[in-house]
Design a protein around this nucleic acid. Structure first.
Lengths: 132, 132
DNA sequence: ATAAAGCCTCCAGTAACTAGAAGGTCAAAG
DNA sequence: CTTTGACCTTCTAGTTACTGGAGGCTTTAT
C-alpha cells in the first residue's frame, strides 16, 4: 500500500493530479489509513499509469473512464476499443488539418512581411481584412 | 453607432463574445446609450473583426491585445509584428509535431487491433504498458 | 395595449488540472 | 523530548475563452 506521494513517484504523476483523479472517481484509492491518508495498491497504480498513457494519447478524461472500464472488463470485445481509437483518430486528423492550414497561411503572411522598422505590415493588414 | 446585436451581425461574432471582449477591455464600446446600451462605432467594429481574424489564426487573447496595440500604433515597426507571428509559428509547429506523432502511434495501434469480438486488444495493452 | 425581440447584469459551468493557505502527522536529529 | 522538515489532509480559487441561463428593463412591431 502506497501513500499518495509514493504512488506519484511510481506512476510519474503529480500528487495533485492523483488526488484530482480520486476526487472525480476516475481512479479511487484502495482505502484510507487510520489518519485519513489515501492508500493505493498495485491495481490502483496500474490504473493510474493506464490513465497517464491514455491522456498522453490525447483521450479526454471521460474517454479514459470508458477505456478504464473496458480495460477492467474481461468480457470486452476489441472492436469497442478500436472504435474509440478510430473516433479519436478522426478528431486528431481534423485538428491536424486545421493546424496545417493555419501554419501555411501564417507562414505565407510572415514571409511577405519585411520585418524591418517600417510600419507597413501585411500581417496586420490581413487581420484588418484589407487584403484577400 | 451600433447596438451590440447590430455589431454582432456586422462582425460575425456572438453578442456574448463582444460583451466579453468589452468586459476584459479588449475592445471597449464607444459609449453607452442613455438606457445603458453599449454603442459601437466603425472603429470598434474594425477592431472586433481584427480580433476575430487574429483569434482564427490561433493567437491568444493577450496576444490579440498586443497585436491590436500595434495595429493602432502608427509608429510601430513591422519587425515587432513579425516577431510575434514567428513565435506563434514555432508553437504551431510544436503542436503539429506532437499531433503527428500521436496520430502515427495511434494509427499503428489501431491497425494492429483486430477489432472483433475477442477481448485481446493491443490498444489497451499499450495503455497498460505491457508492450514496449 | 401587448407581445416579441433585444438589451442589461450577475452567476455558474466548461476541461483538466494547478497553486496556495491552514493545519494535522511522521521520522529522524539534537 | 522537542524540533525540524517532509509528508499528508481539506478547501478555495485561478487558469482560457468563452457560453448559457435567470431575472428584469426597453424598444419595436402589431
Amino acid at each position: 500500500m502506497f501513500t499518495i506521494g509514493a504512488a506519484a513517484k511510481r506512476t510519474d504523476l503529480p500528487t495533485k493530479t492523483i488526488r484530482y483523479y480520486a476526487d472525480i472517481g476516475l481512479v479511487v484509492p484502495d482505502g484510507r489509513s487510520d489518519k485519513g491518508y489515501r492508500l493505493f495498491d498495485d491495481r490502483a497504480l496500474r490504473r493510474l499509469i493506464f490513465v497517464r498513457r491514455a491522456r498522453a494519447f490525447g483521450f479526454s478524461i471521460e474517454t479514459c473512464r470508458t477505456l478504464l472500464a473496458l480495460y477492467t472488463d474481461q468480457t470486452r470485445s476489441s472492436a469497442d476499443v478500436k472504435a474509440i481509437a478510430l473516433d479519436h483518430l478522426v478528431e486528431i486528423d481534423q485538428k491536424l488539418a486545421e493546424l496545417q492550414n493555419l501554419r501555411d497561411e501564417l507562414t505565407h503572411l510572415a514571409a511577405s512581411c519585411a520585418g524591418d522598422s517600417r510600419a507597413d505590415c501585411p500581417i496586420l493588414s490581413a487581420m484588418a481584412g484589407d487584403g484577400s
